[in-house]
Structure formats: C-alpha cells, structure tokens
Design a protein around this nucleic acid. Structure first.
Length: 881
DNA sequence: CAACTGGAAATATCG
DNA sequence: CGCGATATTTCCAGT
C-alpha cells in the first residue's frame, strides 16, 4: 500500500493561517490490494479555493473539501487524471489553486472499462507533489464499498450550495474560448467524456493540509470515515463500532414531517425556514463571527475543527468524544479528500486576478447560498453563462432554451433501492421498460458534449443536489455507456458523452445510486436537510452547450422522482400524478390519483396547514371504490371548511395506507365559487382575462381569472380549445392562449418571466401539461412524461389518459403524451441576464394554452392547470423583493 | 468470483 | 424511562 504524506502549505505569503489560507492537499494512496485505490485526502486548502469551485464552474471544478473515499474515489483519482499507470506511485500533488477559478473535479474514475476515457484524463498537470501515505492509511479490508462510493463522512463541507460568483467576473476572451472548448468533447473516440485534452484544463490533486497526528482516513471504510465528530475529537482509533453512533443534534421526526409537507423547508427557503439555516445568509455571519480564527500554527484540520463544526455538533460536542471513542479509528490517515481539479490554462492568470469576493471563512464551513442566491439565482436563472462560470448544481435551469432542449426521453423506474457504502452496488437505475433511462439533447449536433448527471432532490422545491444520495458509477460488461465521475462541491457528478453520431442521445446505464448515512450527512456543517424519510431523488442531467459568443448555455432536465429506500418502496403509497389540482370550495369533484402501493384501505386526506406548519383543517376524501384500481385511487374531493374564501386557498392531500404510511403531500387548491356559477362564455372569459392583464392587475386578479377558467363550463373550455387547436394537434411550443385572446392582449407577448422564477421549468412548455405531477416534481416542472402511467385507468376517458409507451424511443414520450385541458404557463421569452432587475412590471406571462385531444370528453378531472400557481409564486417572490 | 438482488435482522429514532 | 411502531443500516443468501 502506498502512502501519501500530507502536506500543507500556505498560499498567501505572510498571511496567517486563516482557514482560507490553508493550502489544499489532496492525498491519495493506492491500495494495491484493491488495485483501484487511492485514498484521497483532502483538507480544505483555503477558503478561496473552496469557493472557487463555485466561482467558476466551467473551468473550475467545484471542490469538495473532504472526501471520504471508498474505493471509488480513488478510482477516479488515479485514473482520471493520471490514468492508472501514472499512479504506480502514490503521490500527492500540491497545487496552488487559483482561488476563484477552479471548478474542482473531485475524482475521476479509473475504471478499467472505460478505455475511451483514458485520454480524457490526460490533462496537464501542474505543481504536483507526490507523497507517500502510511500503510495504515487505508485498510483495504474495511472498504466494503465495491463501487465508487464515497463515504458520506468525507462530505464534510457543505459546498453544494455555494454560489458561484464567477458570473460577475469580467470576460476574458481567451478564457472564454478555451473554456468553451471544454464543454465539448473532442473526438468521441478518443475522449467520449470530454477529454481534458480537448480542454485546456489541468487536473491537479489538491492536498489538503491535515493534521497528521490523528486523523482517520475516511477512506478506511464507510464506518471509519471522518465526520465532523471526528474532527472535533480525533482520537486513536480502534475499531469502528459495528454501527454508526447516532448523530447528535438530529432533527426530529416532526421536523421531517413539516419538511415534507412542503410548508417548511429547512433548506433554501430562508424566508420560511424557522430555524437557523447554515445555508442561509443568516447563519453565515454568525458562523463567521463565532468561529475563532485559526491560529497560524494550526493545521488545516485544526482550523477546520475550530471553525467548521456544525452548530448542532457544537451544541452537543460533549457527546462526541464518547461516540468517537468507539467509532473511529484515527491514525495517520487524515481526512481524505481527493480532488483533482481541472484548471484552465488561463486560470492562474485570469482567475488569480479575480477578486475574491466571498469571505473565505464563510466558505470554510458555509458553502451556503446566500439569501441573495436563494432568491435570485436558485431558479429560473438564465441558462446562459460565461464559460468560466458554469452554474452551481443547485441552480435551477430550464430544460429548454431556444432551439435546444435537454430531455429525459425515457424515465427511470420510480423505485430504485439505493445501496449503502457497506453494501455492494445494487446496479444501475433502470427504466420501466427494463432498459435504462435515456436522455437526449435536441437542437445541437455539432460536437460531442458532456452530459452531466447527479442525484438531485425530489421534494417540492427546486431540484438541487441531494445531500443523502450520490450517483454511483456502474461499470461492467453490462454497461455500454462510457462515463466518468467528477465531484463538484460535494456532489458526485457522472459525465457521459453525448455524441452526434448517437443523435446526442445517451442511455444512462452506468448510474447507480449510493445512499449516505443520515447521521453522517446531518452532521455536516451547514447541512439542514434531514435524511429521515427523505428518500426520494431524481436523476438530474445537465449539458453545457458552447455558444458562438463564447458563452455557454446550460440546460438541465430532471427525471421523475425515484423512491430509493427499500422499505418505502415496498410500503409507502406514492403519488405520481393526479387528475386535477383544484376544485371549488364545494368539493364534490372526483380526484383520480395515480401512483403505486395503494391499498384497498388507502385514504386520501386533505389538509390545510398554517404558516406555523400546524394543521388547521383536515378532511378525508370519500373513496370511490368501484373506480379504484391497483395504481389509482379515486376520491370525491371534500368540501373546504370555508365556503367564502375570496381567493384560492392552497391545501394539501396525501394518500395514507396507515398511520405513518403516507405519500408525500401534494398540492391542491380550493377556489372561490364566485365566478364559477357565472359560467362564462369563452369570450367573456378571455375578455376578462385580457382586461385584467391589460390593466396590469396583480396576481390575485390573474388567479381569479384562472379560477374562472378552471370552473367555467367545461364544454366552453373544450370549445375554446377546439377553436384554437386543430384536432389532435398539440402545440407545446406555441404559447397561445386563444387566438382571440392573443389579439386582445398583445401585452402578453411582451411579458417576460421574472428571472427569479421559481419554476425554471416554465421555460419548457412541454412540462406544462397533463396532470399535476406529484408535488415534489411540480415546482420544477421537469418534463414528466410519465412512463409509468398505468395504461389501464378506466376512470378517465381513455383519450385523456394515454398510456405512455415505454419504449426506448427518444422523444416519443412527450409527444405521445397528450396534453389536456388548458394550461397557463409562464414562459421565458427572453433570457434574463440581470436577475436583480426583475420587477413585476418587467415581467410578463407568456400565457399559452396547450390543447390537445379536442375529442376528450372534458370532465372536470380532465382539466387542469398546474402552472398559474407557479406564476403567482414567481411574481410574488419577485414583488417581495 | 464479482456484481446484483431480495429479504430481513439489527439498530435507531419517534411519539 | 420503557415500549411499540417506524425508519435506517447492515447482513446474508441466492442469482
């Protein structure tokens, strides 16, 4: 076994060892026993560096600070940048990193099976320092995780949400050009995955300085991986306990409930987050202030200890030692974090010149998006970025922009049991068809591109990297798709080539899902999400398309939610979609819920919660048993308790199989009956809408009109639809309200969606279709042609519930999916370059009506609107600013 | 034998 | 603090 020595250095001359000053070292060792092992050891280099990851994404790999490696990490480490051969000798490369310009690639997998990727790894190296690790550094036997699992413990830094500041940097022509090249793959043959070769990129290993004394290498085994606890009280280790000790400061279950309810999200929602959120700007300051500055003499680890301790950990720090006693093995291994970074040639020159905007100390333990970020950048952000600044993974991006569209043509199965690090791989995510998910980029066929994939959240908020799951690269004979792993701010990202010869389509047969232990992640500083019952994920895909301007267009598409826990998959009811998402306060309409694990005694509970998260009202929908089937439940919507509401009231409902076997809550609206009885004619309705819009009324007006739309005589709507759309013709890309309406309200066309839109998907007309999808997917409006939609839904007119072919046919799904009803969807008509300037007056709603299936018998359940709420939400947010 | 899988025991957390 | 119900992790055995 090779050993690497840790090394730390200061980047800045004469400066004290502020956390950010610490040089970052990536230590990797090669475990010969395992052939594919190198133990990455990473210590935060410096804050700048850490931040840099977010600063520049394109050229700069976002870094992750600690990386617990199981065998996988090493994989990439070795092979990707250097190739296995280059690793004959374990080495540590010390790299001075341009603070602002490194996107950190954590690891590249060395997979033996990815020959084509070899070239990919041939990246210019620089400033490498090879060091040996001590034999004890890694215990091969303790590495249960065969795959490329990364121990959760290594994911100490919560960098996932770091916001890139690079977008504010000045352009550098050379940078742009070079960076642009980086996003494409040169020759598919030689570098299917975006070879560095084509990219003027350097991959370097960063060695985080570590206190050599007593850190256990996370690499040892998942169980031994370093956690914040370890940091707090490193001690010589003996043997890891058979089971992880329980983490301190865990959130309570009740919190989880709230979280899931969607009313309160500990994350990304500073406005609603009651508690301190490390990711929120709120805590940043406090952290900064509270954290003692590391003494110059302190090792980086020490620095980390001093400053990077999660609040909750600190609060219960007393417990740590006790727990650690039995839990960790501490030897010479230090925090392992392998993070090869890809540097642009221009990085040093260009990036180093960039002012370091973020406070390094903040960065050290708070890779937390600022409030600003949350509100302005998280979602609906322009997909156009400077080449030097790819969007952070937690930025919501549209799936379509102009001629380009990234789409999940074949969705994965809604259940996939993730594997733990202590387990072997559980294989790649499969599609319903038995094959694998397929992703396609349309509108671009010029050069090979890299398709990035990571595991994202599937809650009711925008898609972001999932803290408790990571993508796991699957290799083997059954895998035909080349791929490689990188790590971007704590998130493993799989890069898969999109080749013109394949019609820019990729079959995702190389992606499994790794589950990280809740206790590990929850202790991570800045982490506010809870793991308990947070078992749904999505596959998130991104592609960065170089533009002639030198900038890059980034698109993102996410899959349907995937339930990853064994138990949940077997027991919990899961709502995939439902027929209608609103009803008058009188109730009475039938709601068809499609999903899985529905039982004969399943109930549908409607409830309303207040700001405080408390349930104010609850009612059970009356099940229409005769219409229920295995994959769907039909209930009669209960009347709302207050019949006199003046505006829509948002409630929730969930399917319940028992006391705690509930599906995730779904959104539902109760609407006033005011306009309902008026039974407006098409013209009236349109006129009303037009007038309202023309007068620039607020959301409430829009909502009222929307309501009226929803409840007007359905036949009228049907008529309207027919008049505006030829039979059987859908025009997803053609935003139209009604022909007459368009004439009457020309303003609509001028409307622009606020960049702060929380519904990035709004840029994707196709996502505005059909039934409301489960709540966790709706906000993003990812294209969701539900493949799993049961073909045998008798309750609805056959035409309205079209079984989705589950063939691997790209692009067939979405179009096969008939659009029903009317859909008002905000569309992004122009990319917003300056999100901050958004203002209600600037924005407009591209309102369209997608009409399909004119022959459908328009029953209430067939009508639906899932977008206006989003519009309202968007505007509300924007106005609140 | 390694990679998957399915099942379930062991251990944790919640109320 | 104990207990039952749940949820999470780890193990085991069969393909």
């Amino acid at each position: 076994m090779l050993q690497c020595l840790l090394h730390r250095s200061r980047r800045r001359k004469g400066e004290d060892i502020a956390p950010d000053d610490c040089a970052s070292f990536f230590i990797f060792s090669r475990d010969q026993a395992n052939s594919s092992v190198s133990q990455p050891v990473c210590i935060p280099h410096n804050e700048h560096q850490i931040h840099s990851s977010t600063h520049s994404s394109a050229s700069c790999l976002q870094d992750y600070r600690t990386y617990d490696s199981s065998s996988e990490i090493q994989d990439y480490t070795c092979s990707s940048s250097f190739g296995p051969k280059s690793f004959e000798c374990p080495s540590i490369q010390i790299t001075s990193i341009s603070p602002s310009c490194h996107q950190d690639i954590g690891t590249f997998e060395n997979a033996e099976n990815n020959r084509p990727e070899r070239d990919y790894m041939d990246r210019p190296l620089r400033d490498h320092l090879c060091l040996h690790l001590e034999p004890s550094f890694r215990e091969p036997s303790l590495s249960p995780s065969p795959g490329s699992s990364i121990s959760s413990r290594s994911w100490i830094s919560d960098a996932s949400s770091c916001e890139s500041l690079s977008h504010i940097y000045d352009d550098l022509d050379s940078e742009l050009n070079e960076a642009a090249a980086r996003f494409t793959l040169g020759s598919p043959l030689t570098s299917p995955s975006g070879s560095p070769r084509e990219h003027p990129v350097e991959k370097t290993w960063h060695v985080c300085s570590v206190s050599p004394s007593s850190r256990q290498s996370p690499c040892h085994s998942p169980r031994n991986s370093i956690t914040d606890e370890n940091w707090l009280s490193p001690r010589p280790s003996s043997k890891p306990p058979s089971r992880p000790t329980s983490p301190c400061g865990k959130r309570r279950h009740s919190s989880a409930d709230i979280f899931y309810s969607g009313l309160v999200s500990p994350h990304y929602s500073p406005a609603t987050s009651p508690g301190p959120s490390p990711r929120g700007s709120i805590t940043e300051d406090s952290w900064l202030n509270a954290s003692p500055h590391p003494v110059p003499s302190l090792s980086l680890y020490q620095c980390w200890q001093e400053t990077a301790i999660p609040l909750k950990t600190r609060k219960t720090s007393e417990d740590h030692s006790a727990r650690l006693a039995g839990k960790t093995e501490l030897n010479t291994e230090d925090l392992a974090c392998l993070s090869p970074t890809v540097d642009m040639p221009t990085d040093e020159s260009a990036c180093s010149q960039h002012p370091v905007i973020q406070d390094s100390s903040t960065d050290q333990f708070l890779s937390v998006p600022s409030h600003f970020t949350w509100n302005k950048h998280k979602s609906g952000h322009t997909p156009v970025f400077r080449t030097s600044s790819l969007p952070p993974l937690d930025w919501a991006l549209p799936s379509r922009y102009g001629q380009y569209e990234l789409k999940v043509d074949v969705q994965p199965k809604t259940h996939h049991r993730a594997h733990y690090e202590t387990e072997g791989s559980r294989g790649a995510v499969k599609a319903v068809t038995g094959n694998h998910p397929i992703v396609k980029l349309t509108g671009y066929t010029e050069k090979p591109l890299n398709l990035q994939m990571f595991i994202g959240t599937a809650d009711d908020r925008y898609v972001r990297p999932h803290a408790f799951y990571q993508v796991h690269r699957i290799t083997g004979k059954t895998v035909a798709t080349a791929s490689q792993e990188i790590v971007i701010t704590n998130t493993k990202v799989l890069e898969i080539p999109l080749l013109p010869e394949n019609n820019m389509t990729a079959s995702i047969d190389c992606a499994g899902i790794l589950k990280l232990r809740n206790s590990d992640i929850e202790l991570r500083k800045g982490e506010t999400d809870i793991g308990r019952k947070n078992t749904r994920v999505r596959l998130v895909f991104r592609v960065h398309i170089p533009q002639t301007s030198g900038k890059v267009l980034s698109l993102q598409a996410a899959s349907v939610p995937i339930e990853c826990s064994q138990r949940s998959a077997q027991e919990l009811p899961q709502v995939e979609k439902y027929s209608i998402n609103s009803c008058s306060v009188n109730g009475g309409l039938e709601l068809v819920i499609t999903g899985s694990n529905f039982m004969p005694d399943s109930k549908v509970i409607f409830l309303e919660k207040g700001q405080d998260g408390c349930t104010h009202w609850e009612a059970e929908g009356k099940t229409v048993f005769k219409k229920c089937q295995m994959n769907n439940i039909v209930v009669e919507i209960p009347a709302y308790h207050n019949k006199t509401i003046a505006a829509d009231v948002q409630v929730q409902f969930y399917v319940c199989n028992g006391k705690r076997k509930r599906s995730q809550s779904q959104r539902f609206n109760y609407t006033p009956v005011l306009l309902k009885q008026e039974n407006l004619e098409d013209g009236d309705l349109q006129e009303a809408t037009a007038v309202s819009l023309a007068k620039g009324r607020g959301i409430s007006d829009l909502r009222m009109i929307h309501t009226s739309l929803l409840f007007q005589d359905q036949r009228s709507i049907c008529k309207t639809l027919k008049s505006s759309s030829p039979p059987g013709v859908e025009c997803p890309t053609q935003p139209t309200f009604t022909s007459s309406l368009k004439h009457e309200i020309p303003q609509i066309s001028k409307i622009q969606e606020p960049c702060t839109s929380s519904s990035p998907s709004t840029a994707d007309p196709e996502t505005m279709e059909n039934y409301p999808v489960s709540i966790y997917s709706s906000p993003q409006k990812q294209s969701m042609p539900y493949q799993c939609f049961s073909p045998d839904i008798p309750v609805l007119p056959s035409s309205s519930l079209t079984a989705m072919p589950h063939t691997g046919q790209p692009s067939s799904h979405t179009h096969d999916c008939r659009l029903r009803g009317i859909s008002l969807s905000p569309t992004i008509t122009h990319p917003r370059q300056n999100s901050a300037s958004s203002h209600p007056t600037d924005m407009s709603l591209g309102i369209k009506a997608e009409l399909v299936d004119h022959d459908i018998n328009f029953q209430t359940k067939d009508l639906e609107d899932i977008t206006l709420d989003d519009v309202a939400e968007i505007i509300r947010r924007d106005m609140s600013h």
